[in-house]
Amino acid sequence: MRGLGPLAPPVRVALAETVGVLPREAGLAYEPKFDGHRMVVFRTGGVRGREGGVVLQARSGRIVTGAFPDLAAAARRLPEGTVLDGEVVVWREGRIDFAAVQGRAAATPGRAPLLAERLPASYAAFDLLGVGGEDLRSLRYSVRREGLVGLLGGLGPPIQPVPMTTDPELAATWFETLPGIGVEGLVVKRLDQPYRPGVRAWRKLRHTDTQEAAVVGFTGPAERPVSLVVVLPDDDTPVVSSPLPPALRAGAGAVLRGRPTGGEATAMAVGLGDVAYREVEPGLLAEVATGTTRHTVTTVLRLRGPEGDPPGRGPVG
């Protein structure tokens, strides 16, 4: 793609390994972890189609430009040859709304402009992978960070750099106070670290081992689903949960019967490979427990409504 050289989409993104305590050794940088959808922004050379020289790529490599026309328009203000890594979030009533950003990501091109007006997206950029067509991934994080702030400092919303500190005490304060706005943890990077695609060279610290995931489908009958298919924060690849216990199957069935269903698709199930599932309308959340690697088992603990509260009179199961 003209103007991007080796950084033409799709590119593999850097990943993070979960840790249980805040790292405090010398030479570290700390950033808030926004639970949204990972996205790489490419400002290509020239104008291509309605998006006008912009390509938006999800973590999986899927091109999602059409789902985010507001961010595509904002990215046209970037210099040609710019490539950013970051997180898409939607703010509602002062908090990050993961169900809303999942709804945005699943929007068809025809519906996307309306959702962009109702649920405008923001882009929290945390890395500068390229500028002017030059690949910066081999440079130190500190150099890339300086370039990121310099590039975006005068741009303004909706594309902005995430906050960063090298002070572990300030990072600890962020960790304790930011959950109030939906920021559930920190990402920790070495200042001398290059950007390593596909490698868990960063570290992430979360408050709990559980997180909210967006329910995008189910396997088995709608009345008593065998498993739920969910999308986790910082990802866009649907995964199949472990089999639901009997009480949760009954409760999930009661909720799913009241939601519109779509067509069939496939998702990855640990130990089984790709399995077929029935899609459901976005907006339903599940509290899930996951392991520390991408393809460990995902266990559904309970369902939540579109606003994050348990549907009905209490938690399902």
Rank of each mutant, 00 (worst) to 15 (best):
P23L: 04
V226R: 11
L148W: 09
A213D: 08
A254V: 12
A26V: 01
A267V: 08
A106W: 12
R12A: 14
M39T: 09
T44A: 06
S60G: 02
R59V: 03
I63G: 00
T292I: 10
Q211Y: 04
L119K: 06
L78N: 00
E287M: 09
P238D: 06
Q102W: 04
W91H: 01
V231Y: 12
G53K: 05
D35H: 06
L7V: 04
Q193L: 10
P225F: 09
A213L: 13
V47N: 01
T237R: 15
A74R: 00
E287A: 10
V41L: 06
L78Y: 05
G251R: 11
A124I: 12
E51Q: 05
P260T: 04
L155D: 04
K204P: 02
G3V: 13
P163G: 05
V300R: 10
T165S: 12
A171T: 11
F42L: 01
G220L: 10
M1I: 14
A100F: 04
Y277W: 06
E212L: 14
R140Q: 06
R144D: 07
T293Q: 14
G66F: 07
V54N: 03
E93T: 06
R200E: 10
I96C: 03
D35Y: 07
A124P: 02
G49P: 03
A214S: 15
R62M: 11
D235T: 14
V47F: 00
L78D: 01
Q211I: 02
R24E: 12
V131A: 13
V280C: 10
F34R: 00
H37S: 00
G251F: 04
V239C: 02
P161M: 01
P260S: 04
R302V: 02
T173Y: 13
E51S: 11
G220F: 10
A267N: 08
I63W: 01
P158R: 12
R62E: 15
V149R: 09
P238E: 07
R38L: 01
V230F: 07
G251A: 15
Q102K: 02
L152Y: 12
F34D: 00
R206G: 09
I159P: 02
A8N: 03
G133E: 09
L186N: 07
M39S: 00
M1L: 08
R95E: 03
Q102M: 08
L78K: 00
G61C: 03
G253E: 15
R111H: 14
A67G: 01
E31T: 09
W202T: 03
V183M: 15
S138T: 05
G150N: 05
V64T: 13
S138F: 02
T210V: 12
G147I: 08
E223Q: 10
E117L: 14
